[in-house]
Nucleic acid binder design. Structure first.
Length: 300
DNA sequence: AATGGATTCAACCGCCTGTAT
DNA sequence: AATACAGGCGGTTGAATCCAT
């Protein structure tokens, strides 16, 4: 395929294929198509000369931007973050699978969120002395030497970073449910919203996730590390996620507020943390372990 | 106000899988 | 059974934006 100027190329039949950002007119055409024919036969959009886009590109655009009920422009809420973190530990980098548990989120969203989070972690934990706000870590052995190496998560290799289990929880590698991991809550500059609850969500979403017993951290976070993390993240609550403050705490998996607003996060704020602990009481733990059999979001 | 680094996010690519022929 | 094709998925990239200095 020959890439042409202004993001266009030609396929083997000489049909121009446009690449790059989508224009509003293209979106309209695509939405009209989906209204007429449904979200399928993507390649026919091009063969019918409706759009100079590949079927893949059309599908991606629809799934990531045009599909109804997407939460566009909303930061991940703390609840959603916890879901991603937990499910990533459980499933690995199965973003589509994880996204299925997050109404209004796409695999791309989850992937981007995770990538951002990993980068942030790597930056914080790998090169703490290089940051402008970082103080010296000379007295913090946890940040030096071979503290940076690979961790394996869900069978996939992650970027170089501190061996989190050593900091957080030595059982992290078990990849079993109910392992509490660290969470980075966005600073207040990041607007967040609560996921809408579709009327017919699968059980795991309607009830979200049950309270998970936190495994006690095997190693406390060094005071120096706490300072570092707080200064970096601007959120002292973060340390709770490391279990450094009180090993007896219970960290819950998130649940989503029910009956929330629709897409686009109209209120634009965090929506607050779900704090209804009773929410989990009736939820069978087995549902988590057999979550693969849960109905697909496409069935909602 | 300018600048540079960090972050976010949209979109592409390549691989894999399922299905039709 | 073999092949072709479409769709799905995860990884990656680069532009736009944000933010601290």
């Amino acid at each position: 395929m020959i890439v042409m100027d202004s993001g266009k190329s030609r396929d083997g039949e000489g049909v121009t294929v446009r690449k790059g950002s989508w224009m509003a007119e293209e979106d309209h055409v695509l939405m009209d198509y989906v209204k007429k024919y449904g979200p399928r036969d993507w390649s026919s959009i091009r063969s019918k000369r409706l759009l100079p886009r590949t079927g893949k590109s059309c599908r991606l655009r629809w799934v990531n931007k045009l599909k109804p009920d997407l939460k566009i422009g909303c930061k991940f809420s703390p609840e959603e973050e916890r879901v991603v973190i937990d499910l990533q530990a459980r499933f690995g980098n199965k973003w589509a699978k994880i996204a299925a548990y997050l109404p209004g989120r796409t695999d791309n969203d989850v992937k981007n969120f995770w990538s951002t989070r990993q980068k942030r972690l790597a930056r914080i934990l790998k090169t703490p002395t290089q940051g402008k706000s970082h103080k010296s870590n000379a007295n913090n052995p946890a940040l030096e030497g071979d503290s940076c190496h690979h961790i394996s998560s869900g069978g996939t290799e992650e970027i170089k970073m501190i061996h989190l289990p050593n900091l957080v929880n030595s059982n992290l590698h078990d990849h079993k449910p109910n392992k509490v991991q660290l969470e980075f809550t966005p600073t207040d500059k990041n607007k967040q919203c609560i996921a809408p609850s579709p009327p017919s969500q699968p059980l795991s979403l309607q009830h979200s996730f049950p309270q998970l017993p936190q495994t006690a951290p095997d190693l406390p976070i060094l005071p120096e590390m706490q300072d570092l993390l707080v200064s970096e993240l601007g959120d002292s609550n973060l340390l709770d996620m490391f279990g450094s403050q009180d090993a007896g705490d219970v960290v819950e998996l998130p649940f989503f507020a029910t009956g929330g607003p629709g897409r686009h996060c109209p209120n634009g704020d965090s929506g607050g943390l779900g704090t209804n602990d009773d929410f989990f009481d009736d939820f069978p733990m087995e549902a988590l372990y057999y979550s693969e059999s849960l109905p697909s979001p496409s069935d909602w």
